[in-house]
Design a protein around this nucleic acid. Structure first.
Lengths: 179, 179
DNA sequence: ACGTGCATGTAAAGCGTTACATGATTAC
DNA sequence: GTAATCATGTAACGCTTTACATGCACGT
C-alpha cells in the first residue's frame, strides 16, 4: 500500500523538508495518526528520488554540515493528489493490547485490575491535557480553505478519541467495582 | 513483545481450541482489538508447543480428518497470568489512513472531499449497527466475576469508539461545508 | 568543555499480509 | 455433485522496530 510514501510526499508537498524535519513532524501533530522512525524515513526518501517523485538540494548548515532539502516534483504532485482522492474501505479496528487484557479480565485479581485501569486512566488524562494545550494554540476554528483546517480536524479527532477512551475506562472501573 | 503469543494463550486458556477455532475468534469479537491470519497462527502454535506452554491432542473428525486440539499447560497458565497483570505505557496512537488523508484535505477538491467523508460515515454507521446487534445478544449487563464481562466491556468499547468516529466525521462535514 | 539537538545513514530481527498448497466434511 | 466451511501448513514479500554507526551545530 505504500502509505508511508504518501505521508512523506504530502509533507514535502506542504513545504520542502529534510528527512529530519519529516521525522520531527511524525513526533508532533502527525503522530496522532501516523508515524515512522528515521530508519524507515531515509530509505523511503531515497526510493522516492529514484521514482522521480521528489528531488533535493544540498544545503550547508554552519561550516560543513550538509543537509538534503527535499522538494516535490510535478510527477510527485500528481501522484500524491491522485492517492489523496481515492476512496477506501474502512480499516479493520486497530490492535490494542490493553483491550486484549481487558478481554481476559476474569483472570486478573480484582485489586490489580483496578490498579491497571486507574493507571491507564491517568495516562490518558495526561495525554488529553497535552492535546488540549495544542488546541488552545488555535485562536479560532479555521474555516474551509484555510491552511490549518486539516491540522485542526485531526487534533480535534484525537481529543475526541481520547475522551471516549477515558469514558470507557471509567465504565470499566464502575462495572468492575460492582459486587 | 510477542502479543500474539499471549492472545492465543489466553484463548486456549479460556477453552481448548484448534488453530482454526482461534482463527475464527479473531474474525469475531476479538477482531475489535486483535487479529491474525491463519498463516501467523499455525507457526505461533508450533512455537508455543516447543516452549511447553501448550500441548495438543489429536482428534478425528468424520472418517480421517485429524485436528489438533490445543490445551494450556500449568507453565502456560503461569506465564499467561503474569503477562496479564503487567502494567503498561499507553501505546502510540494507532495509524489511520483516512485521518492522514484528512490532514492533507486542502489538496482535495471540495466536492470529492464531501463524497469521501459521506462514504466513511456510511461505512461506520453500518459497522455500528452490527456491533449493536451483538450487544443485543446480552440480555443484561454482566456483573463482576461473570464470564461474559470481558466480552461485554470490549464490545461496549468498540461501539463507543465507532460512535465517536461518526461524531468526528460529522464535525468534519460541517466544517467543510461552511461558507 | 559538554550536553542536547540536528543530521544521515545501514543491518538485523520481528511482525504481518498475500500467495501458494492441499485435502476432508457437511449441508443443500 | 458442488459449494461453503473446516482444517493445516509453508514461502515470499513488505512493513516496522531496535540496534549499530557517525559526526556537526549551538547554547551555556
Amino acid at each position: 500500500m505504500r502509505t508511508l510514501k504518501y505521508a512523506i510526499l504530502g509533507l514535502i508537498n506542504k513545504s520542502p523538508s529534510t528527512g529530519y524535519d519529516i521525522f520531527k513532524e511524525f513526533s508532533d501533530s502527525l503522530g496522532n495518526f501516523w508515524n515512522a522512525k528515521h530508519s524507515q524515513i531515509y530509505p523511503e526518501l531515497k526510493k522516492l528520488v529514484e521514482e522521480e517523485l521528489i528531488k533535493y538540494d544540498v544545503v550547508i548548515t554552519g561550516e560543513v554540515l550538509e543537509k538534503k532539502v527535499y522538494i516535490i516534483t510535478e510527477k510527485g504532485k500528481e501522484e500524491f493528489k491522485s492517492w489523496l482522492c481515492k476512496n477506501e474501505e474502512i480499516e479493520p479496528t486497530p490492535k490494542d493490547i490493553f483491550r486484549l487484557r481487558m478481554y481476559f479480565l476474569k483472570d486478573i485479581p480484582k485489586e490489580r485490575l483496578l490498579e491497571l485501569l486507574e493507571n491507564q486512566l491517568q495516562q490518558r488524562l495526561e495525554k488529553i491535557s497535552h492535546l488540549i494545550e495544542k488546541r488552545n494554540a488555535f485562536t479560532e476554528v479555521p474555516g474551509f480553505g484555510e491552511n490549518e483546517l486539516g491540522d485542526y480536524l485531526v487534533l480535534e479527532g484525537a481529543i475526541m478519541r481520547e475522551e471516549t477512551t477515558v469514558q470507557w475506562l471509567e465504565k470499566c472501573i464502575e462495572l468492575c467495582n460492582e459486587r
